[in-house]
Every structure is written in structure tokens, then in C-alpha cells.
Design a protein around this nucleic acid. Structure first.
Lengths: 72, 72
DNA sequence: TGGTGATGTCAGGTTTCTTTGACATCAGGA
DNA sequence: TCCTGATGTCAAAGAAACCTGACATCACCA
């Protein structure tokens, strides 16, 4: 797949939210565990809809979860 | 395709930025004109990467371009 | 009248994201 | 030791996003 330029803070946010398990977050977001792992590891960038759901699961804004580098 | 729940302010932002044409924005973002039209009309929600590029083209944050409703 | 630019639509293909299902590793506890 | 839970990997298939290319409409102006 495409190596994504988008980075994220999902792992840090999970641990900041009571050692939240990947499976629990996946269920809260509405995706599979495999999908969440791939996103968390930066294998690819999610759809905007999934990104919103992840941010909302943590109660933060998109910018606090995902970062996009300056230049291409 | 999937009717997306994500709404956006692309059209308003285009006009707020000197009557920017769809073709110009598409070129700045790096997608085709057809893709930009579909996103602007809410036909589907873009990838996170494209979303970031659109926000950056206007010089604003993601939250100022895309909105996600409260509940499913 | 005719031409041009901006917007929108459609069909078809390709790429990327997501799912399902199976399996592997590793730490910790009974 | 054996079992369980949390994490990670892989392959194959489906769904969603994105592309190319052609055409349609509408406003505007020479």
C-alpha cells in the first residue's frame, strides 16, 4: 500500500485514557481490530470519517490525533 | 457509494478566497476536478490526506473545513 | 448567433482502505 | 507447565475513494 505521510498519536492517547485496549477502541470507533492496528502503526491513513470517530472516541479534535508534515 | 455524514465548507472557503475556481483548488490540492466536485458536494468523504491538503490550501485547520455530526 | 469558461454528470477502470478469518508471539497468572 | 489476553501478521476479498475521458448545461459576452 501507499506509505502515508500522516502521523498520529493514537497509541499515546490510548494509554492516556486508562490503558485502553486496541480492541476496545476499535469497537468504540466501529472498525475492526486489524484496521485500527494498521492506522495506529501508520501503515496507511484512514478515511476522514474514521479519523473523526477516533478523535471523538478520545474526546479531542482531529488535530490532536493526526499530524500532516509541512511539505510533500 | 456511501452517503457520507461529513459536511464541509469548501464552497464558502473558495469564494472567501477570491472566487477561487474548482479547477484551481483541485490543482492546488493535487486531485482531479471531478474528485473535488464530489467532495464539495458531499458525495463521499475524502481520505485524511486529501482533507489535510484541502485545509492547507486554504491555510486553515481541518475543523474549519470539515464537520462531523454529533451522533450516528 | 456563436463561442468560451465554470460547473456538473456519467461510465469504466485503478488504487487505497476495510473486512474476514486464521495464525503467531509474548507476558502474566493459576 | 498450561492457559488466557493483548498485540501483531498475513492473505484474500469486498467496498470506498480516485482517476481518465467524454459530454451537458448555463451564464456571459463579442
Amino acid at each position: 500500500m501507499k506509505p502515508t505521510k500522516v502521523t498520529n498519536s493514537i497509541r499515546a492517547l490510548r494509554f492516556a485514557h486508562g490503558e485502553m485496549k486496541q480492541a476496545d477502541l476499535a469497537a468504540a470507533v466501529g472498525v475492526t481490530r486489524q484496521t485500527l492496528i494498521a492506522i495506529e502503526q501508520g501503515k496507511y491513513s484512514p478515511s476522514l470519517e474514521v479519523a473523526f470517530k477516533i478523535a471523538r472516541a478520545f474526546g479531542v479534535s482531529l488535530d490532536e490525533v493526526f499530524q500532516y508534515p509541512e511539505e510533500d
